[in-house]
Design a protein around this nucleic acid. Structure first.
Length: 416
DNA sequence: AAACGATCCAACCGCCTGAGG
DNA sequence: CCCTCAGGCGGTTGGATCGTT
């Protein structure tokens, strides 16, 4: 039997709060303070559930709430924090004075998740094919004429061809059929060269265009350039879970078009892929660059083991080349050299540190970073950050600098 | 102007945790 | 140790909004 409800709900009002209710609640809390939510409605003369009163106060009536749109700085911070903390909205909100967890959650779901997920997408199918694929990502992502419907407030004055991913269950269902059709079209047109984004994909394991009608985050586009220096290696594998790891032969890091905001970013990913005979973790790495095009490779070699015991001082060395292009023209060639090593603190927690150098042929903006970590494993946003491995659960390593990001994570338990 | 339908946000819901008896 | 309760959290959704046709 479930818990009793927090209050007797019969006869209680629901839905939007009126100005009069707001005033009653505010006056009551001003005189009596917060807390005792269960008894508050009765004492304040409100026909509301205590929980509802609490929510209304915390999310709307509090004096210290910040009004207005999320600023660019706040947005950047949300993205960075989400990378580190995941969907722990209250924790994220704690870093943004005046913003509520609900507000941030909504903002993430309606604005940011799409931007982020348009950057990294993965296919649903295990089938592979070796045909080069050239396709029009812009078309896939809704560059066609919109058939009615409201344009996002946030994006109405910005780019409109964002993919519909990570929506609510309801919204996903509503658009699954449409996206499925688009994916089918893409499959039919895979050998066409389209304008705008002339994305040339060549890989031995480009997956077919398939769409899951259930509307999970699915691939509607794919791009993969194998690093010619790593032709014998597997393609980049995005391991978000044990399941992905098991499927790594088929899971490819898929990168879609990137909007203006994301175009400033370069993302480097490093993640554990498998164990060697000694149980050491083999890391794989990938680089995604921006401007709509990128190339990726993974790298593991005899040094690419992350040890947890005596191997702690070994590390991961990466040499990743990424080509960034804009439109038809190649504009830069970057080389990323990275290293990673681990250590243990007195509590037995594992710390990981990283260093990476990005060298770009297109500018003198060569950057070198080395890792830093605070006691919480939370980012110093201007530097590399080491994450903490706890109980074989989750590791996040993250760097967000001027234009780079590195994420490193382990999946669920019992992987190692 | 009306209809459509995508989008968004306030509010709700269920679950979890910790405190206290 | 068990139960109840309050508070808190993250996921979900109802319905208002508003751009497009």
């Amino acid at each position: 039997m479930g818990r009793a409800p927090c209050c007797e709900k019969v006869g209680l009002k629901r839905g939007r709060w009126t100005a009069e209710e707001d005033e009653r609640l505010m006056k009551y809390i001003q005189h009596n303070g917060e807390g005792s939510w269960r008894s508050l409605p009765k004492n304040a003369g409100l026909l509301r559930c205590g929980k509802s009163c609490r929510l209304r106060w915390l999310n709307y009536l509090r004096k210290d709430l910040k009004r207005g749109n999320i600023s660019a700085d706040e947005e950047n911070l949300i993205i960075k924090l989400h990378n580190t903390l995941g969907n722990r909205w209250s924790l994220i909100a704690g870093h943004l004075p005046g913003r509520t967890d609900n507000e941030i959650k909504n903002y993430w779901n309606s604005h940011l998740s799409r931007r982020i997920e348009s950057f990294i997408r993965r296919p649903s199918s295990s089938n592979s094919q070796s045909l080069p694929i050239i396709m029009d990502i812009a078309k896939l992502n809704g560059d066609q004429k919109q058939k009615g419907g409201r344009t996002s407030r946030a994006t109405s004055t910005k780019k409109k061809n964002k993919p519909n991913i990570l929506k609510s269950t309801r919204d996903r269902k509503a658009s699954a059929e449409k996206e499925n059709a688009l994916a089918y079209m893409a499959n039919q047109e895979k050998n066409m060269v389209m304008s705008n984004n002339n994305l040339v994909m060549s890989s031995s394991i480009i997956p077919p265009m398939q769409q899951n009608i259930e509307g999970e985050e699915e691939m509607t586009s794919a791009i993969m350039n194998m690093d010619p220096l790593s032709s014998e290696r597997e393609s980049v594998v995005l391991c978000r879970s044990e399941e992905d790891r098991e499927r790594k032969e088929e899971v490819i890091l898929v990168l879609g078009p990137i909007d203006e905001a994301a175009a400033a970013d370069m993302m480097i990913m490093s993640f554990p892929s498998s164990n060697d005979a000694n149980g050491n973790i083999i890391f794989e790495n990938g680089v995604t660059s921006s401007n709509g095009l990128l190339s990726c490779t993974d790298y593991t070699d005899e040094n690419g083991f992350m040890g947890f015991n005596d191997e702690r001082e070994s590390g991961v060395n990466t040499n990743i080349k990424t080509t960034t292009t804009s439109g038809d023209d190649q504009v830069s060639l970057s080389t990323c050299n990275g290293g990673s090593s681990s250590s243990q603190n007195e509590n037995g927690e594992w710390y990981f540190t990283n260093s990476t150098t990005i060298t770009s042929s297109s500018s003198s903006n060569n950057m070198t970073h080395s890792s830093l970590e605070d006691e919480l494993g939370v980012c110093d946003w201007d530097n590399w950050v080491g994450g903490i491995l706890e109980s074989n659960n989750l590791l996040w390593e993250e760097f967000v600098g001027d234009d780079m990001m590195l994420n490193c994570w382990l999946g669920g338990e019992n992987q190692w």
